[in-house]
């Protein structure tokens, strides 16, 4: 079998649905993740509706920091899709550059979030302080871990771009992008719920 045939066989859809296994698997995984975050958000909303003064005077979060962090994630969603577009045009340097920018923006998001946590801890605000903060740290903590996971996935893909086996791994770039966009969508809902209302 020639190299071209091998690459073609690897890239060809391998299911009866015509959708590559990896992509279908990622979407099913994301569907389960939607249910996971919905459970957490629904619990938050039910508790919120049970407390008319929610979150109370001590439940203040800095809107400017939240807005900036949301903007950072929106930018990272664009850069990861630009990495995919560059790869589809065969521009390897562009793919690497946009992936690197995505990872850097993810790191910036986590840095800002960490500084928010540090500030809360300095004011003796912990998950055990009250129900609002318990919800806040749970929701943002799980999202934090998902961003971290997305960064690791993107770093893994970035490391593979330098190898000669990239044609076999390029599908993972799309999968990493799908995961990253999901993380962005979760934050699109967490931001107003925690910072704006």
């Amino acid at each position: 079998m020639s190299t071209a045939q091998t690459v073609s066989a690897i890239e060809a859809p391998s299911t009866a649905t015509g959708i590559p296994n990896g992509k279908l698997g990622m979407w099913l995984f994301l569907a389960s993740e939607v249910m996971f975050f919905t459970g957490l958000i629904a619990a938050f909303v039910i508790l919120w509706m049970s407390h008319p003064a929610w979150p109370g005077a001590e439940g203040h979060l800095n809107r400017l920091i939240g807005t900036v962090n949301t903007f950072v994630l929106i930018c990272s969603s664009m850069t990861v899709v630009l990495a995919l577009a560059a790869d589809q045009r065969g521009e390897m340097a562009g793919t690497r550059r946009w992936l690197l920018v995505t990872i850097a923006l993810g790191a910036l998001f986590l840095l800002i979030k960490s500084s928010e946590y540090r500030e809360k801890f300095a004011h003796h605000i912990f998950p055990s302080t009250n129900v609002f903060w318990s919800c806040y740290f749970t929701l943002t903590g799980f999202h934090f871990l998902h961003v971290l996971g997305g960064m690791v996935f993107n770093l893994y893909v970035l490391a593979r771009t330098t190898g000669r086996h990239w044609p076999q791994f390029r599908k993972r770039l799309e999968l990493a992008g799908l995961y990253w966009h999901f993380v962005d969508i979760v934050w699109i809902f967490l931001f107003p719920l925690l910072y704006l209302f």
């Binding site: 649905t17 015509g18 959708i19 992509k23 279908l24 979407w27 099913l28 994301l30 569907a31």
Partner: peptide, 8 residues
Amino acid sequence: ARLLRLVA
């Protein structure tokens, strides 16, 4: 594919 939209 439509299947992915249904999964979503």
